[in-house]
Design a protein around this nucleic acid. Structure first.
Lengths: 349, 349
DNA sequence: CGCGCTCATGTAATCGAAATCATCGATAAC
DNA sequence: GTTATCGATGATTTCGATTACATGAGCGCG
């Protein structure tokens, strides 16, 4: 038994022909044993399976894929895999994909358009049946594909939502969530609030900013808003939160559009000899696994990351299985998680 | 021009035949334009490329792969993609792979053997040219493959190192690093040291534990060691560090085998009304991006995560290009980064 | 002037599995 | 008893590219 395995592994891997020969049947029968076992007699099925294990046969993927025009792979592009928010979403994607018999081709675009295009052409070469992109841009070649094929193009957007792209997507209500954060801060008595956004080209930032502005206006506090533009990284959090704090009449509360930038903000606060939440309240966004273990524990907006992953896969599978014909934009629930980084301002007003 | 693109996208994608016909050459010439442009006359090359853009042609991946028996893909399995340590390694892998013209197939095994086997059979089906696994286990089918093909089997191990597996690997000197940590703590004056390990089945844990024991013995402090077994998660850090602290004669310093567990330990310390480093010093392992932004900033062992990623890819590419014939085990440099979570004990002894 | 050589290109076999169509025996229907 | 039907299986084409081999034009050299 082990000898047979060994032998099988040394040779260039048995083909369906070898199995057919060994089992004394045709290649068609062997193929059927895998793809439509109900069509083949139990006795022959057994005979074939014996030959399969004897030779250690595994169907060649390329051959199968060439014939069926399917790869059973999903290409997932992400701006930064080392970001815990994205890696958690990816985890959900991987799980849902595997459950449906698909595997995941990962593309880390590093926010670079060139890499996005590289992966786009990979998709056009049919290296994957579908594409899930977690960024906010869609390379031109793919946009053209969408324009031509419409909503049955197997491309889905996750986390972000830009109506103009004309692809299905799953995301939270970023605008509403950001407004809730502001209400929370205003409710605590803060009036001078600073905001550290992400790059405004992405809807994820502009939507949240819209929510911030709407809430500020409702409260008549729009003129007291201070804004700085970050890039979601810890370092930009340190820098931008620092600039807000160094202004005259500094904010008593800062809302960062990501937990990582909030971590940076904690650092900026510490470096100035201030304390959170005593001197400055702080709110993050995402609720990454680490948010509740920071000091102070971070108040933040919890996004259902794995669920977003599941949902985008579901949307994609629906398209692939031709179960859908119109765009779907799924808004998943978020939750403001109040922890100890927010408190009423020391001297109200 | 845009019309042509659109048209091309609607049709089932142009084949090499279509291009050949359109350019008035044979398919062989078209193929050569891509794989060996120097063999084809500049004029015809241009003619072909025009047809290519006109039709929006991209070579079909499955067909190419079937013929060449190469996929230009690397399968990377990882125990947990949402772990910042691993996601950083993956980032390095992705970068090096892309630079060499390979793309990354990601497998999150979730520490489950069943998933590892699923991905192993994916590799046997030739869905990838090589396999990089960041865990400590190698499924049986692959071990047999290694036994049969020897060191030219395109399988490489990253982060861990288990000589019995007989595959090349890239990792740090875990034993030495752990010993350095203990020396640091002993040097500060600590005598009662607690250790929170990972699961001892993985060399990454047992090697570090060996280093801990060796250092303790050299100092004659082996009997004062306290040990708890965690699983690298934050939660297990909270739990296991907590148990160490609740013992009579609790440790004045705790060494956790991962930064995440150290984060948990910070929480355990906080919950008991203690302070780090005043009452308890703390050391982590990995130096994930967040380690320096915790409070207190975490003393830890820095691993060159992206470099590990680059290195395993290099090892794999060497095997794939037949540039190597013997096993290579690369030990990359680590560095003890002393930050503010370690200090001399309050009452020495 | 013709032989051989090189260079550019065409022809056709090939990769391994899937799927269509053909076959053949057995059973059921009339 | 003949024929339509069905169930199981085999023969063969097909997917789209690569590549070994064939071809043929152009050129140099004896």
């Amino acid at each position: 038994m082990p000898r047979a395995w060994l032998a099988a592994s040394v040779e260039p891997m048995a083909t369906i022909q070898d199995v057919a020969l060994d089992a004394g049947v045709s290649t068609a029968t062997v193929s059927r044993v895998f793809s439509a076992p109900e069509l083949v007699l139990e006795a022959t099925r057994k005979k074939v399976m014996e030959a399969v294990t004897r030779l250690g046969y595994e169907p060649n993927f390329a051959a199968k894929s060439l014939r069926t025009l399917r790869t059973e792979k999903i290409l997932v592009t992400v701006p930064d895999i080392s970001n815990p928010f994205f890696s958690q979403v990816i985890r959900g994607v991987e799980e849902a994909a595997l459950a449906a018999g698909y595997s995941v081709l990962l593309g880390d675009t590093r926010h670079e358009e060139a890499r996005e295009e590289q992966y786009a052409s990979m998709f056009r070469r049919k290296e994957a049946d579908g594409l899930i992109f977690l960024g906010h841009r869609l390379p031109d070649v793919l946009a053209e594909m969408v324009a031509a094929k419409g909503p049955r193009t197997p491309i889905v957007n996750g986390c972000e939502f830009r109506p103009g792209l004309a692809v299905s997507s799953a995301h939270i209500d970023n605008e509403g969530a950001a407004a809730e954060v502001m209400e929370h801060l205003y409710g605590l008595g803060h009036t001078r609030v600073g905001v550290v956004t992400g790059p405004l080209v992405s809807p994820i930032s502009s939507d949240r900013l819209a929510g911030v502005l709407a809430a500020a206006q409702r409260r008549g506090r729009a003129s007291a808003l201070r804004m700085a533009i970050g890039d979601f990284s810890i370092e930009s959090g340190v820098r931008q939160a620092g600039e807000l704090l160094d202004q005259p009449g500094p904010p008593t509360a800062i809302f960062c559009f990501s937990d990582e930038m909030a971590m940076g903000a904690i650092e900026a606060i510490r470096r100035r000899g201030l304390s959170c939440p005593r001197d400055v309240s702080l709110v993050g966004f995402d609720d990454i696994r680490f948010a509740q273990y920071l000091s102070p524990q971070l108040t933040t907006v919890s996004q259902p990351m794995e669920q977003i992953g599941h949902e985008v896969v579901r949307l994609l599978l629906d398209i692939l299985a031709d179960r859908t014909s119109s765009l779907q934009n799924v808004t998943l629930p978020h939750r403001l998680v109040v922890r100890s980084s927010t408190a009423p301002p020391a001297s109200p007003g």
